[in-house]
Write a protein that binds this DNA or RNA. Structure first.
Lengths: 203, 203
DNA sequence: GTCTATAACCGGATAGAC
DNA sequence: GTCTATCCGGTTATAGAC
């Protein structure tokens, strides 16, 4: 009964994603994943031999989402301005849909940096893309920042608000989730304007 | 022999900080902390009743470092420009000295957001400070960004490069730690210029 | 205060019935 | 494929000698 196999497998993956994203590899419990999936603990081992393998499956899948997006943005942007806009829009829209991703990847990054870097290296996007976009701009219209600093700036501006959600919500907005949501809604546009203001010299 | 007590306690705290910062609460092992401190595992329990209590001690202490710094910067800056400079310099200099702090706090933030927010709320720094600095500037010289967005921007720009160290080093610089260190050295100045370029309108 | 030995517990993994 | 019962290793925590 292949149909049923896929259903259970899907349920497990979904549950595992949920729990791993919330607790990280170390904090997650197989029992909790089983409960979340509404199945028995030993079934987890039947489908995936070990916790490690299950985690790897979830991680690879999750990470691929992000990488695919970046690759797409890198290859499709042809001016510095469109690059900034596409990159920020792409990134924030993924994170708004799946805010847990940020924590998940960062968490795994501190637990097992090697694995994350390996996954990135498997991809084939062009790290020099931004530098070449910058060099093809008129030197009088943009400030000469180091392209790598700028990439890190943009990543930081996009990712951090999701990682720091409890602080922003709890401290800046006194726990008001509505205000946090508005803040996030406005975030995309803010980052684009902020970065463009920093990079482009006004005439 | 009070002197000795303090010494051992200090050794434990230092070892615990080291291990907790590296592995997080879930990943850390009491045995590893004992080894790092050069003492026996059961002594840990003698000084601190449980792993939880030991972690709490380390966390509170570590977090206090950061909070004290921010409080100090917030109260001592009297213009927008000096605020940006002090804030960025203060933050990055702490992180350069103790790069693990970023991971540690972010990790705990996803594991136990409540605890982190409580600690922040215990402090008494003025979240409206930046807004008041902005409003006291000449409206024609600065762009009217939302002050909370700007605070988050600055925090993001300062903290992220440390959290993402493996990615920046491994991917951007092909694993070359020297290049990463140069990148970090230049980071403080870059952030200050980047933020000022974004916020201040050139005449 | 510090150590060795061990208890108590927990969680991942397996065996085996259905 | 799914379940119940159980094993086994590792980890926190405690007892007790020195």
């Amino acid at each position: 009964m292949v149909k049923k196999i896929e259903n259970t497998e899907e349920k497990i993956i979904a549950a595992a994603r949920e729990v791993f994203l919330r607790k990280g590899m170390d904090g997650a419990r197989m029992q909790e994943i089983a409960d979340e999936a509404g199945i028995n603990k030993s079934l987890l081992h039947y489908y995936f031999r070990s916790k490690d393998k299950l985690f790897d499956r979830v991680f690879t899948e999750t990470f691929k989402n992000v990488i695919d997006l970046i690759t797409e943005v890198f290859s499709s942007s042809i001016t510095l301005e469109s690059f900034i806009e596409n990159f920020v829009r792409g990134y924030t829209s993924v994170l708004i849909k799946k805010p847990y991703i940020a924590n998940f990847v960062l968490h795994e990054l501190s637990r097992n940096p090697q694995r994350v870097v390996e996954h990135i290296n498997l991809t084939n996007f062009d790290k020099l893309k931004l530098a070449s976009l910058i060099s093809s701009e008129d030197k009088n219209t943009i400030r000469q920042f180091n392209p790598i600093q700028i990439i890190v700036d943009i990543l930081a501006l996009c990712i951090f608000p999701f990682v720091a959600k409890p602080i922003i919500k709890g401290f800046m907005f006194d726990g008001d989730i509505e205000e946090y949501n508005i803040f996030i809604d406005q975030r995309t546009q803010h980052i684009i304007e902020f970065v463009k203001s920093a990079v482009f010299i006004q005439k």
